[in-house]
């Protein structure tokens, strides 16, 4: 019975990781950009929500609604003025620029907000739990997983059933030919990063309600998210969900054996899967 509970907790944790990873997967899939600052941008979004909550006296969900367009603008500007300038065949420049951004954002937040732990308080919902047969699950963790599924459904709809999604896929296939069709790749990339930041805001909301956060936690969360994206396979959003859940279960199982092994178990699961599937579980056919 304890094992069912552990695995269930792992699945729910995986929901959070999948939420972190969904925005990353979008950007990675469209422009092959490894954004090493994504984790710190999620933390930034959490602080933006926090500021809105305290200055306007709103709850976290309402505050996130206001934070989302702000973060979209941040992502759009970041892509337009910085990242588009370094995108190309060579992965080194974008990697190093986003690494620099990661350090700047993290230390900027540290400078402004100090290293104190923060939390987005959502009231009584945090403590509520549901009894599902033999096990009890928290409402918030369940809501996080549901949100991850909703976000992925929404992104998939956007990707496969809208004109914008069509332009995303065409640009991802062949940006030069897409330009011949009147698609502006720079613009497409800016919108994609803006959307990724909206997803980052949603992740920040659930991260901040479930656990304490401080300016330094970005990179570790980013790593789990990257593991989820890579395990899932480039450009497959459902793969990203599966990847997140695998990391979550591995961490939960590791922690059940020995608390010190939680993170290690997640990393080992990543290595093990890539050992047998170097392109992830659900790679795109034409990459």
């Amino acid at each position: 019975m304890i094992w069912i509970d552990t695995i269930l907790q792992g699945v729910l944790l995986g929901g959070l990781y999948a939420l972190f990873a969904a925005g990353l997967s979008l950007v990675f899939g469209i422009m092959r950009l490894v954004n090493l600052a994504h984790g710190d941008l999620i933390v930034l979004a959490a602080f933006v929500i926090l500021i809105i909550m305290s200055s306007l006296g709103l709850g976290p969900f309402m505050a996130a609604l206001i934070a989302a367009p702000i973060m979209f603008a941040v992502g759009w500007a970041l892509q337009t003025y910085v990242l588009n300038r370094v995108l190309g065949d060579d992965i080194l420049p974008p990697l190093l620029v986003t690494f620099g951004l990661s350090v700047v954002i993290q230390n900027g937040l540290l400078e402004v907000f100090s290293a104190d732990s923060q939390k987005l308080s959502a009231g009584s919902i945090e403590a509520q739990s549901l009894t599902l047969g033999p096990v009890a699950v928290g409402v918030m963790p369940l809501l996080t997983l549901v949100m991850a599924v909703v976000v992925i459904l929404a992104l998939n709809y956007l990707f496969f059933h809208t004109a914008l999604g069509r332009a995303f896929r065409a640009t991802s296939d062949d940006a030069v030919t897409a330009g011949l069709m009147g698609v502006r790749p720079d613009n497409i990339f800016a919108i994609a990063t803006g959307l990724a930041m909206v997803v980052a805001t949603i992740s920040a909301l659930f991260l901040g309600i479930r656990a304490n956060f401080d300016p330094s936690i970005g990179p570790a969360r980013l790593l789990y998210a990257f593991e989820a994206v890579i395990i899932g396979g480039l450009g497959s959003l459902w793969g990203t969900l599966v990847g997140g859940i695998i990391i979550g279960i591995a961490q939960a199982l590791g922690a059940a054996i020995n608390p010190a092994w939680q993170i290690l178990a997640g990393h080992l699961a990543f290595v093990l899967i890539l050992l047998f599937r170097p392109r992830g579980l659900f790679p795109r056919a034409n990459d």
Binding site: E227, A260, H267
Partner: peptide, 20 residues
Amino acid sequence: RLSGAYFAIATWVLAEIVRL
């Protein structure tokens, strides 16, 4: 066996494993 971006992330994960 991993290409560009995957290589970078994998080296990071392995560094974490060694540390842990």
